[in-house]
Nucleic acid binder design. Structure first.
Length: 125
DNA sequence: AACGTGACGAGGA
DNA sequence: ATCCTCGCCACGT
């Protein structure tokens, strides 16, 4: 049904899909939009368990300070950096300037966007 | 049931 | 800027 009845994981995936290309969001930001207040730590787990990670823009989600959460040297981290650079997000020393790249949905998007009416922007329930 | 853990975050030293 | 401590909360032991 709608995202309120959907599982927390589904809601997280849905929010992730709403992050525009070339933009990033913080774990806490995604958690809040997904209705998981104080659940920033849950977001990572949800992304990792996504059925199709190749199609989910999990790479656009970073720590609040702009740092990449995945551990240095890990394959996932390299993949994330590659994906971000591919869409024009600048990364210096594993850090992204949130001032410039953080996604900030406007009112219209919050009220009328896919987050508000998932059935319109996604495979309708 | 207590305890440790983690793709987090804010605040203080 | 870096490190540490706590708060957070779902999960697995």
């Amino acid at each position: 049904m709608d995202e309120h009845s959907a599982s927390p994981f589904r809601r997280v995936w849905h929010v992730a899909e709403a992050i525009p290309e070339g933009c990033v969001a913080s774990y806490s930001q995604v958690a809040k939009l997904a209705g998981l207040n104080g659940g920033a730590r849950r977001v990572g787990g949800a992304l990792a368990k996504a059925p199709d990670r190749s199609r989910l823009p999990w790479h656009r989600i970073l720590k609040a300070d702009g740092k990449i959460a995945l551990p240095a040297g890990s394959a996932g981290r390299r993949e994330q950096i590659r994906r971000l650079e591919d869409e024009g997000v600048l990364i210096e020393n594993g850090r992204v300037d949130m001032k410039k790249f953080q996604w900030q949905p406007d009112m219209d998007e919050l009220i009328w966007g896919p987050l508000a009416f998932p059935a319109f922007g996604d495979d309708a329930e």
